[in-house]
């Protein structure tokens, strides 16, 4: 089961009731990947033509025939071959961190790869993917006609990085750590977006104007205090900044 929104995230819900997000690639990013692929195809064709140049004099008939067939094979076969062998990736897509997937989050089938690439011929119309571009802009999942026919989507493979926690400086003694059951509740009460805001605010500490920093930290501390139930003795003498550092320490360090 899937649910889509125009916010570029497609949430796949498995029959087991588990959900995971797929980040849809925008037409702009896809067009950059396509330009990389086209540059590569052009380079291959250029090399091929140079290679065949001497044969054009010796046996022009065979050389022209081979050139025509090779150009056609490269033009059509490049995308099919790479997307099939590299599981939905061409060189351009790999560089841009994109991947073609089944629209239901499943593995691509060979039929899907062939159909989505054959339909480039119509997506190209009247020139440089105008029709495909318009269709993908209007589609809720950014699908061009080839994607719609083959039931495929193009997603961004987003690498996740461990935050540099050495920049968070909680007090040497984290008074909140004495309450494991309250820590578990806090972890449930603070959502991923809020914890990301908290972490960013702490990591950017030195980039913030001191007055602005005091205001931001006070607001964040007030927001998180409202979600937590730590006793007063655990919070005694903690500044907003120290309190936030302790909370981040709990949320991000195991």
């Amino acid at each position: 089961m899937t649910s889509a929104s125009r916010t570029t995230v497609l949430t796949i819900v498995t029959p087991e009731g588990v959900s995971f997000p797929l980040h849809l690639a925008s037409p702009l990013v896809r067009s950059v990947a396509w330009m990389v692929d086209v540059s590569l195809i052009a380079a291959v064709i250029w090399a091929l033509l140079n290679l065949l140049n001497p044969f054009l004099v010796v046996m022009p008939d065979i050389a022209i025939a081979f050139t025509l067939l090779a150009l056609f094979a490269v033009e059509l076969g490049y995308f099919i071959l790479f997307e099939w062998l590299w599981k939905g990736r061409t060189l351009g897509k790999r560089l841009l961190g994109l991947r073609v997937m089944d629209a239901a989050g499943l593995d691509l089938s060979f039929h899907q790869v062939v159909v989505r690439n054959l339909l480039r011929f119509i997506d190209w119309l009247p020139r440089i993917y105008l029709l495909g571009g318009i269709v993908s802009l209007l589609s809720p999942r950014y699908q061009r006609l080839g994607d719609l026919a083959a039931q495929t989507i193009v997603v961004r493979v987003i690498p996740s990085f461990e935050p540099n926690l050495s920049m968070i400086e909680p007090g040497k003694f984290n008074s909140l750590r004495a309450y494991p059951h309250l820590i578990a509740r806090l972890r449930k009460a603070v959502g991923p977006d809020e914890s990301a805001v908290l972490l960013n605010a702490l990591l950017r500490r030195n980039a913030l104007d001191p007055d602005a920093r005091a205001v931001i930290y006070a607001e964040l501390a007030q927001l998180i205090r409202a979600r937590s139930t730590f006793p007063a003795e655990a919070l005694d003498g903690l500044s907003d900044e120290h309190y936030l550092g302790n909370v981040a320490d709990i949320l991000y360090r195991r």
């Binding site: 022009p60 008939d61 065979i62 022209i64 025939a65 081979f66 025509l68 067939l69 150009l71 056609f72």
Partner: peptide, 11 residues
């Protein structure tokens, strides 16, 4: 150029 012609017709 029969071979080239054949290739053109095919493509």
């Amino acid at each position: 150029r029969r071979t080239a012609g054949a290739a053109w017709y095919m493509t």
